[in-house]
Amino acid sequence: MSHSVADKKKLLNRVKRITGQSVALETTLQGEPDCLAVLQQVAAIKGAANGLMKEVLENHLREHLGANDLTNEQRSHEVEQVIHILKSYLK
């Protein structure tokens, strides 16, 4: 991943946010959780993960698939890899 330091910092901040939300969910579940609070935390984690996926996917598409020096075969291979990952992610 050849992103700039600013991009890496932004991605790491998103991961830290997801980690914090996961820890908060775990703590909630260890107590006497209210169902709506749990649902809200799960939704927040999913939203944060989706935001991370969008950011990394967008950067990948721009930097790797948008590269002018790829052969048609390399580009097709990259596209197939992204499709495979998206199918797995969207299950």
Rank of each mutant, 00 (worst) to 15 (best):
A49S: 07
A67E: 02
R75P: 00
L90G: 03
D34M: 06
K91C: 04
A48C: 07
V5Y: 11
G31L: 04
K9A: 15
V15W: 01
S88A: 08
E63N: 09
A24C: 06
R75M: 00
L12Q: 04
M1F: 03
H3M: 14
K54T: 02
L29C: 07
G47N: 03
M1V: 09
I45V: 10
S4K: 05
L12T: 06
V82T: 10
T27Q: 12
L12S: 03
K46L: 01
E80I: 08
I85V: 14
V79P: 01
E80Q: 14
Q41P: 00
E26W: 00
R14W: 00
Q74A: 11
V82Q: 05
A67I: 01
E73C: 05
P33W: 07
E26T: 15
K9D: 14
V79Q: 09
G20V: 02
L25Y: 02
H64P: 00
E73Y: 06
A44T: 09
D34H: 06
S2E: 12
T19F: 07
N72A: 15
L61R: 12
L25V: 06
K8R: 15
S2N: 14
E32S: 07
T28Y: 01
L11K: 04
E55L: 11
A43G: 07
N68D: 10
Q21K: 10
V42C: 12
V38Y: 06
E32Y: 06
K9R: 14
D69R: 03
L61Q: 13
G20Q: 03
V15F: 04
G47A: 08
L25K: 03
Y89K: 00
R14F: 01
V5Q: 13
L39M: 02
S22R: 05
G66V: 06
V23W: 03
Y89E: 03
A43V: 03
R75W: 01
G66S: 08
H3A: 13
K9N: 15
Q81A: 09
E55V: 04
V79C: 10
N13A: 13
V38W: 09
P33I: 10
V56G: 02
L36E: 09
K10M: 05
E78M: 06
Y89I: 00
L52E: 00
D7N: 14
I85D: 08
D69A: 04
V23I: 12
E32R: 12
E73G: 07
I45M: 01
V82E: 08
A6C: 11
L90Q: 09
Q74I: 08
A48D: 12
T27L: 12
A67Y: 00
K54W: 04
S76A: 14
V23H: 06
V42L: 14
S76R: 14
K91V: 11
E55M: 11
E80P: 00
N59K: 13
V38S: 11
A48E: 13
V15R: 09
A48H: 06
S2P: 04
H60T: 02
N13K: 15
D69Y: 07
D69K: 04
N13R: 12
L36V: 12
R62Q: 15
E63F: 10
P33F: 09
T28A: 10
Q41A: 04
E58S: 08
A49F: 07
N72F: 12
K54E: 09
V5M: 11
P33A: 11
V23M: 11
